[in-house]
Amino acid sequence: MPLSTSSIKVGTSHSAVVVDNLTRTQIVQYAGASGDFNPLHTDEVYATQVAGYPSVFAHGMLTMGMTGRMLTDYVGDGRLTQFGGRFTSQVWPGDTLTATATVTAVEVRDGVAVADFDVVTHNQTGVAVFTGSASARLD
């Protein structure tokens, strides 16, 4: 169900675990769906032996996509008007990510009720892997 102006206020926060123990297979699924087959994400041999990383790691856009799921589950389908942010740390196989939206504004703009959110996704050690913001139309 979409959010309504009466159900939130500035400071209201919503969190969801968006992946528990990220698998290499899910990273490869994302490669196949998005079209980004960079071996840094899909090829453990290349990532470790050529690029010098400890393993493959997730596409930043996989983290953002999973974070978007938290948002759309919270605000409702087709309600986002803006969503963006920065990839602040790498996400590795085995990671568990928790995405959080915190209301920063609830107001009427051009006759439409809108909420703004700070968005942050943390890994299991508390490191922020994605930080950004979003806006959504409310009921």
């Binding site: 596409h59 930043g60 389908d77 803006q82 963006g84 990839f87």
Partner: peptide, 15 residues
């Protein structure tokens, strides 16, 4: 070196 995606921002006008 390594090229990486640093930021992504979307504006949605409609689904």
């Amino acid at each position: 070196g390594t090229g990486l995606h640093a930021e992504q921002h979307y504006e949605y006008l409609r689904p």
